[in-house]
Amino acid sequence: MSPTGTTTAELLHEGRCTVPLSRPAAAALDDVYAEAQRFFSQAEDVKLAHGSADFNFGYRPYGRQYSVTPDRPDENASFTYWAGDPATVPQHRAPTVTGFLRALHTYWEVVTETAETVLADLAGHYGRTEPLPFRTSSYLEINWYLPDSERDLLQDRHEDGHLFTLATSDGPGLELEIDGQMCTCNREPGTLLVMPGSVLTAMTDRQIPPLYHQVRNYHLPRRTTVLLLVNPPLDRPVAPYAGDPEGFDAASLARHSGSMFGLPPAPVLDAVDRP
């Protein structure tokens, strides 16, 4: 487990690390799992009413996202909660989604504190005076896996295409690429896995490679993943932590990384970072 001040060292040395899940975060996470079950158990037309036309916000049905090729969609539906703002979700005041959004917002408030700690450690390591603002450009993603899939992999090998992901799940299946081999993730209980993405790789002049991973099918009756996907600001230039800043554009990388999964460009929300 990585105490404060060592996450960057572990990312550089191991390519991944874990951070403690605080008691408030653990309690909020339990509520997210419970409310996710209620939300995703509703009729498809009810859930679709809470998704945007471009599938950036709220509910994203099965078949809209893939890890490698469109003919092998990820075996899950998703829900995205951007920037800690429930108003980004269509019909966010409807009773069919308010409980879920309350749980997501509570978890957002505590898990973004963990992201702030990771970013502060990166800033300190690379001689930055302030950590990157991230809240208006980042989002929670809840993945609800199909219980009846017959595929060996519920998600194919991929990296997330962000700065990093804070990941946890209520069931086994995650496999990480370590020394060229896919290995079962043995994350300690009560922790979040920090998975670097290709934007962080670019920001560190390839010092921290992206963590490739996949999800194996254990034929569980239920599997839910809760992710905080952390981006740099999307509305202005961001200098890299290391390497030549000439022509570097982290915002463009982050905005368009979803195209490799069949997703539209990431939205630019408010210019002022939310607290």
Rank of each mutant, 00 (worst) to 15 (best):
Y66V: 00
Q37F: 12
F57N: 00
N76C: 15
T80S: 12
A49C: 08
A34H: 12
G63M: 06
A27K: 10
R72D: 13
L48A: 14
T69N: 12
G58D: 01
R60Q: 15
F57D: 00
Y59I: 01
R72Y: 13
G63F: 08
K47S: 02
E75K: 12
R60P: 01
R72V: 13
A34Y: 09
D54H: 08
E44M: 10
E35S: 13
Y33C: 05
S41D: 15
Q65L: 13
E44P: 06
R38A: 12
R60T: 12
P61E: 07
S41R: 12
G51P: 02
D54T: 15
Y59K: 05
N76I: 00
Y59S: 00
N76E: 14
Y81L: 04
Y62F: 15
S52A: 09
N56Q: 13
A43E: 14
A83C: 08
K47F: 06
E44D: 14
E35W: 11
E44A: 14
A43F: 08
F57G: 00
G63A: 04
Q42H: 09
T80Y: 09
Q42D: 04
A77G: 09
D71A: 10
P70Q: 06
D45F: 11
T80L: 11
G63I: 04
A53W: 03
L48S: 12
A43M: 10
D45H: 14
A27C: 08
L48V: 11
S41P: 06
N56S: 14
R64V: 14
D31R: 15
Y81G: 00
P73W: 10
F79V: 02
T69W: 12
P61Q: 06
Y66P: 01
Y81A: 01
P61T: 07
Y62M: 05
R72F: 13
R60W: 02
A83D: 07
L29C: 03
S78M: 14
A53E: 15
A27M: 10
D54A: 09
Q65W: 12
H50P: 04
F55I: 09
F40S: 01
R64P: 03
